[in-house]
C-alpha cells in the first residue's frame, strides 16, 4: 500500500505541492491528471527522491516504510520505479551494463543473489522478447539516438527487470505517436499484477484509453481537487481543465 499524507514540496524555494493526500491499495492503478504547472512532475520526482525537490511537510510511505528519508537508490530497492517523461541519454554507458548494474544492485539490496553475465543476458532477452524490444538495444549507449518510442519502451523494459511494487509513470504518453503509445501501453499492461501498484501521471485522457485506471485524481495548483472513477477522466476531457478549475474555485 502506498500512502501519501499532506505532502508539501518545494523546488527553487517555491512551494509546488501544497498538501497531497493519496492512498493506493496494492494492485490498484491510479491516474493523476492535471494541467501544465499543476505539480505533476514535482510529485513524481519527490516520490523518487530527486535532489532539489524538498519535502517541507507530510509523509509518503510504501508498505508502511517511510520513503522520504531514503536515497533514490534505496527507494528503488524498496520497490519504487519512476518511468521518466524524458528518459536521460547517457553516452558511453552501454545499455546492457546499465541494466545489469541496476538489476544486481536492486537484487543485492533485496537480499537476492546477483546474476552473472550469462544469467542476466538470458533474463534480459526473455523480457525483451515479451515486450518486443530488439536485442540490438543492449549494445547501444543508454537512450542515445533512440526515438521517443524506443526510449519509452526502454523504460518499460527496465521496469520489467526491476519488478517494482510501485511504478510511477510520468507523462509516459508525451512525445509518442499513436502506434508507439499502443506498444508502450501494451507493455505496461503486461506488467500489471495484483502485487503492483501504478500511479499514472498524464495531461491527456488518451493514455487512459489504453491503461485503464481504477481511480482518477485531478491535480491543480499543487492540490488534488477532485477524485473519482474512470468516468472522471472522460468528464475532464469534455469540460477541459478550465471547467474543472472554475468549479473548484
Amino acid at each position: 500500500m502506498i500512502e501519501i499524507k499532506d505532502l508539501h514540496v518545494e523546488t527553487d524555494d517555491k512551494e509546488i505541492l501544497k498538501g497531497i493526500d493519496l492512498t493506493l491499495q496494492k494492485g490498484e492503478v491510479h491516474a493523476i491528471m492535471g494541467p501544465n504547472g499543476s505539480g505533476k512532475s514535482t510529485l513524481s520526482y519527490a516520490l523518487a527522491g530527486r535532489d532539489g525537490y524538498n519535502v517541507t511537510k507530510g509523509t509518503a510511505s510504501i508498505n508502511e516504510q517511510s520513503l522520504l528519508d531514503m536515497l533514490p537508490e534505496e527507494r528503488a530497492a524498496a520497490g519504487v520505479f519512476l518511468a521518466f517523461q524524458y528518459p536521460v541519454e547517457i553516452p558511453g554507458v552501454q545499455m546492457s551494463n546499465f541494466l545489469k548494474t541496476a538489476l544486481n544492485a536492486v537484487r543485492k539490496a533485496r537480499g537476492k543473489d546477483e546474476l552473472d553475465a550469462l544469467e542476466f543476458l538470458k533474463l534480459a532477452k526473455k523480457k525483451m522478447k515479451e515486450l518486443g524490444v530488439s536485442d540490438d538495444m543492449l549494445k547501444r549507449p543508454v537512450n542515445v539516438g533512440a526515438s521517443g518510442g524506443e526510449k519509452k519502451r526502454n523504460e518499460v523494459l527496465q521496469m520489467a527487470l526491476l519488478e517494482p511494487s510501485f511504478a510511477v509513470l510520468d507523462e509516459t504518453d508525451s512525445g509518442l505517436d499513436i502506434d508507439s503509445l499502443k506498444i508502450v501501453a501494451d507493455g505496461i499492461n503486461k506488467l500489471r499484477s495484483p502485487e503492483r501498484t501504478f500511479l499514472v501521471i498524464t495531461h491527456y485522457q488518451r493514455l487512459l484509453d489504453y491503461i485503464k485506471p481504477d481511480v482518477v485524481h485531478i491535480l491543480a495548483d499543487g492540490r488534488i481537487i477532485k477524485s473519482g472513477g474512470p468516468e472522471l477522466a472522460l468528464e475532464l476531457e469534455e469540460k477541459g481543465y478550465a471547467g474543472f478549475l472554475g468549479q473548484a474555485a
Partner: peptide, 22 residues
C-alpha cells in the same frame, strides 16, 4: 544522469563510477 542511474537502484558511488568510466 546521476539521478537517472540512482532511480534505477544504482548506489551513488557506483553511478558516479559508471559515468566517469563512460
Amino acid at each position: 544522469s546521476l539521478f537517472y542511474l540512482r532511480s534505477r537502484g544504482v548506489p551513488e558511488d557506483q553511478a558516479r563510477a559508471l559515468l566517469i568510466e563512460a
